[in-house]
Amino acid sequence: MIRTEGLKMEFRVGFFRKRVVALKGLTMEVGKGEVFGFLGPNGAGKTTTLKILMGLVHPTGGAAWLMGRPISDSSVKRNVGFLPEQPYFYDYLTASEFMDLSGRLFGMRKREREARAGELLDMVGLSGAKNLQLRKFSKGMQQRIGIAQALINDPELVVLDEPMSGLDPVGRKQVRDIILGLKDNGKTIFFSTHILPDVEVICDRVGILVRGELRAMGTVDELLSGTRVKSVEMTFTGVSGESLSRLERMASGTVTRGSETTATFGDPEAASMAKRLVFESGGEIISLIPHKSSLEDLFMEEVEKRK
């Protein structure tokens, strides 16, 4: 659905036309029906990539294709929906008028536009606000009308730039549910974000972009498979005296709440020794939780590399 080859982007900024490299040869592919999360810190080049795909900026090198056709072919956008970052809309229009305008730009017929607009406003929970001017919309409502306009043409590919940023937990959940709904309908979704917990829940694959370079790409499991168990957390009870002191010395930290003690061990070996000690001293283990690296750790590692 999306393919880029050596995509490069350079900007000239300021009075002295200083050269800023936003993308350093991005090569990637997103398959049909995939939910692809495009991760990276601010200024990594995520938005630039999305803008290139949408024909908003012209790349200074490389090439990109959407559904097998070059991005310069504007007819390819017939099957694409796009939500820009922090979207601004024509605030003098009402929600219905805005949806109608979006439909017209796809050359949709009146009846089709009306039916689709009604359906989508319903889906994003805005049918009650359809005659309200967009200037009166809250941030969450703006994001939802943004998603609705991106879907007016029932696109095969949906590109969303930071769809969850600036939303409260309720708004984030709504957006997440909409994305999962689209996935169930077989749509391909490509979205950029820096909100990682959502990514682990909804993405089939992710790519991590740092300073214009793609540092890692794959499924969340693949990316995390090479990572080791970082620490083990064990909660136990019924251990006292010398045994408890030994356990406390072995652990990197302990917290005692009533009769229960929670100890954290730096590696699995220390944890299994501690487990034996608890049993030998007649204690009882309440829980044993290994902590593996999360996507956030991997993300931070990639960002920190060669800083």
Binding site: L56, S74, V76, K77, F82, P84, P87, Q149
Partner: peptide
């Protein structure tokens, strides 16, 4: 300035 153009140009319009 308001970036409303992003919404328009990303649609199949020249």
């Amino acid at each position: 300035e308001k970036k409303t153009i992003y919404i328009i140009i990303s649609k199949p319009i020249k």
